[in-house]
Design a protein around this nucleic acid. Structure first.
Lengths: 203, 203
DNA sequence: ACCTGAACACCGTTCAAGT
DNA sequence: ACCTGAACACCGTTCAAGT
């Protein structure tokens, strides 16, 4: 197909060899939408191409494989998660911060269940995200854990908190809490218990 | 193919129309092996059929779809997990039991990383396991949590423990603990902190 | 420079035909 | 009763050809 484009001087015409009809950002955005709407299995190159408005082979101009596209989606979402979580802290009170971090983390999981579950899931090598994207969240949790549990056990305390929060949200998203009860209350119960024991361990 | 089979009376022969060359149990076992060895994406009907020794269409005599086969594998592994975990408790001392439950859970995850990660992951509807298979493990954790944290918060306490253990093992299997440190020690630290706070909350 | 149709190997799944 | 080859629709991916 031949396209003609008017420059700022309307009389001049330039032959432009098929200008880009999409972009990497758009492809990742569309892929993310499909992942959230219909799951990883529905995230096919053909489906992405259709929504984007090109044919599947054209996607390979921006992305080397479906696995890489999946990785890019997860990394994008992970960096968004890290952003939200790291911004949640900063009140000055470590117990308050712990609560804010945990709630921001959980809210993000609820808002993005498909991609959230993929972050730490078992994926093909090429789809596995570079978790350095999560660094800012790690720092925020680490700092809060250090203030709560003392500097000697900062890393172990942070791992306790993060493992619990990730496990809790993953399990509720998977429908694993089937014995009834108030799940919101159970989450807050967890925050309180963790804050309690970390606080005590620093005495 | 025509097969002849000798009964207990060696002179009598029965015409048997193509006797079964495999079984559901064998198919699930093979599928589990592929899942562990090469991941969910490699678990194809063709690959299962090849290992089992039949052609792919024959699998549909025992299983209605690949998604269902995946579900059967996960449920089988989940019931094995529940068995191991529930047998780990029973020392009489709730803190000892908590430690034993957690270690049994983690050891199982390390021994079966592929299927373990799939238990609470986001799968197509037809692959989603019936988590009733985990009931015996739930009971064991609930009983231990009740003795540690008191009956008023048994369910919330159990969710705290299970969410942490599942999150911890998932994250380490996903390679998410990238800041160094002693991961084994961090796991034991978690057990101790949880036992501490649950114990306290029952006073 | 980007996009496309055609092609290839590989899926899951169905089904008529074989034994 | 179970197994098979052939067939279909759908994947991911490559590539020569189009503009």
């Amino acid at each position: 197909m031949m396209a003609t484009v008017n420059s700022l001087q309307p009389n001049k015409e330039y032959i432009v060899p098929t200008p880009a009809r999409t972009s990497l950002a758009r492809i990742v955005e569309v892929a993310r939408g499909i992942l959230e709407a219909d799951g990883l299995a529905a995230l096919t190159m053909q489906r992405v191409a259709e929504v984007v408005g090109v044919r599947a082979p054209s996607l390979y101009k921006r992305v080397s494989s479906r696995d890489e596209l999946v990785r890019l989606v997860i990394e994008h979402v992970a960096s968004e998660l890290a952003d939200r979580v790291s911004r949640a802290a900063g009140s000055g009170d470590p117990r308050r911060d712990l609560r804010a971090l945990a709630h921001a983390f959980r809210a993000f999981g609820h808002a993005n269940p498909g991609a959230f579950a993929a972050i730490f899931s078992r994926l093909p090598e090429a789809s596995r995200p570079d978790l350095a994207t999560l660094a800012s969240a790690s720092e925020a949790v680490l700092a809060t854990a250090a203030r709560l549990g003392g500097p000697d056990h900062a890393l172990e305390s942070a791992r306790l908190v993060v493992a619990w929060a990730y496990g809790f949200v993953s399990m509720e998203l998977a429908g694993a809490f089937r014995l009834g009860g108030d799940v919101d209350a159970a989450f807050d119960f967890g925050i309180d218990r963790l804050a309690d024991t970390l606080d005590r361990s620093s005495l």
